[in-house]
Simulated assay, not measured.
Amino acid sequence: MGACGAELSSFIENIKVDNLVLYQEEDGKYNWIESFEFENLDNCKMFSWKINRDVTS
């Protein structure tokens, strides 16, 4: 596996263990963020691999 494959594998593993979550901003845009950083965002929805949390701060 090359460098890109290893990076992708790491990215996927971080999603699966909930270290990396998808969030939706107020303006509707989506982005990835480390789960511990999400707590600092207001009025955003978070989506997790393990639990489809629809959390609005």
Rank of each mutant, 00 (worst) to 15 (best):
K29H: 11
E39W: 03
D42R: 07
V21K: 01
M1S: 04
S9I: 02
G5H: 04
D54T: 08
G2I: 02
S57V: 09
N40K: 13
Y23E: 00
W32C: 12
N31S: 15
E25N: 13
E13Q: 07
Q24C: 15
F38T: 09
I12N: 03
E13T: 09
K16H: 04
Y30I: 07
K16V: 03
K45S: 12
F11T: 01
N19C: 11
S57Y: 11
D54K: 07
W49K: 04
D18E: 10
I12K: 03
G5S: 05
T56G: 10
N19H: 14
L22D: 00
L22N: 00
V17P: 02
I12P: 00
S9N: 07
K16S: 06
E7V: 08
D27Q: 07
L8F: 09
F38N: 01
K29G: 08
S57H: 09
E7G: 05
D54Y: 06
M46W: 01
N40F: 13
E34N: 13
N40S: 14
W32L: 15
D42H: 11
D54V: 08
N52S: 10
L41P: 01
W49I: 03
F38K: 04
N14F: 04
A3N: 02
F36Y: 14
N31P: 01
W32H: 07
Y23H: 12
F38W: 11
L22F: 01
Y23R: 01
V21L: 13
K45G: 02
D54R: 04
L20R: 09
W49V: 05
K29P: 01
K16E: 12
G28H: 08
I33H: 01
W32I: 07
A3I: 04
D54A: 11
D18F: 00
E39Q: 09
N31Q: 13
W49S: 07
W32P: 05
I12C: 02
G2W: 04
N52H: 08
E25M: 15
F47Y: 15
V55W: 08
L8I: 09
F47A: 02
N43R: 10
K50T: 13
K16I: 03
C4L: 08
S48I: 14
I33P: 00
N19Q: 14
